[in-house]
């Protein structure tokens, strides 16, 4: 941009940078404040604090709802990630490689978990699980499996998008060469195609994990009293009060999600995924 020197352009530049700084502040401030609170030594929020300490991180480990929640979130996110990949990798192959009638319809269907409000997905799944439980006696409501099923659904659009994006760049003639040299289709898929699309698969796995681990609105309907995820435990605690312990738990969540994203950014251009 050409730099002008007139007063009005100076005002414009100041306004522009003020908006940039203000906007970033609104995005980042809440996370900064949570991290700060977790290191404060007072048990209740006072500004400025009397001192700083790590004791709330020790306290966090003594709170069973957070530790159990962390374990549940971890298990559900792992199950949802693996199941989601098992479903979406084959589907992405077909969607990226083949032209067939109804392809767009199926693509829209697979993307729809992003469009339907999470709170509605949660309500609908919850009611169906209760109905199925009444009819069959299978304990789905409030189980880890019901929760994982809901989370698999949420990971599907992201995985399809990330894996397909990688597949589109692969030249099919490489695979045809392998096939013509006598490799079985399975061997070709595993030894030729998979290594090429590996970055997309890793990104999809990490993204799915992050989406599942941080989910709140769908989990809300699918957890039970003894089986809570970390975000739900945080939500329920915050409805009661805010203190450095719950801030420390939040930092735990920030670290897990942040690590996932940092790893993902090594494989894909994050800016292109939303």
């Amino acid at each position: 941009m050409v730099k002008g020197n007139s007063p009005s352009e100076l005002v414009g530049r100041i306004a522009f940078h003020a908006l940039v700084i203000g906007g970033f502040a609104v995005i980042v401030l809440p996370l900064v404040l949570v991290v700060w609170l977790s290191f404060v030594s007072d048990a209740i929020l006072t500004v400025p604090p009397d001192g700083y300490s790590f004791r709330w991180y020790a306290e966090m480990f003594r709170q069973p709802q957070f530790m159990d929640g962390f374990a549940t979130s971890l298990i559900v996110a792992l199950v949802a990630t693996l199941a989601g990949l098992a479903l979406t990798i084959p589907a992405s192959f077909v969607l990226a490689r083949m032209a067939f009638r109804g392809r767009d319809a199926i693509l829209h269907l697979l993307m729809s978990p992003l469009i339907v409000p999470a709170i509605v997905i949660g309500s609908a799944l919850y009611m169906m699980f209760v109905e199925v439980e009444i009819r069959t006696g299978l304990p789905i409501t409030g189980s880890v499996w019901g929760l994982a099923a809901g989370h698999v659904l949420l990971t599907i659009p992201w995985s399809i998008r990330l894996v397909s994006a990688n597949l589109v760049g692969v030249n099919p003639s490489v695979e045809e060469a392998a096939l013509s040299l006598g490799a079985t289709p399975l061997a070709t898929a595993l030894r030729i195609t998979l290594p090429i699309v590996w970055p997309g698969v890793v990104a999809a796995a990490l993204f799915s994990f992050v989406v599942s681990f941080g989910n709140l609105e769908v989990s809300l309907f699918l957890v039970s009293a003894g089986e809570t995820t970390l975000p739900i435990a945080v939500l329920q605690y915050l409805q009661w009060k805010i203190n450095p312990t719950v801030a420390a738990v939040s930092v735990l969540q920030i670290v897990v999600v942040g690590t996932g994203l940092l790893l993902t950014s090594r494989f894909v251009n994050l800016a292109r995924t939303v």
Binding site: P30, L31, V34, P231, V234, L238, A247, S250, I254, L261
Partner: peptide
Amino acid sequence: FLPLFVGNAVRAAGWMV
């Protein structure tokens, strides 16, 4: 990106502070 996936409860906690 980080705040995007950290979860809305955690960010609400920040605003409570």
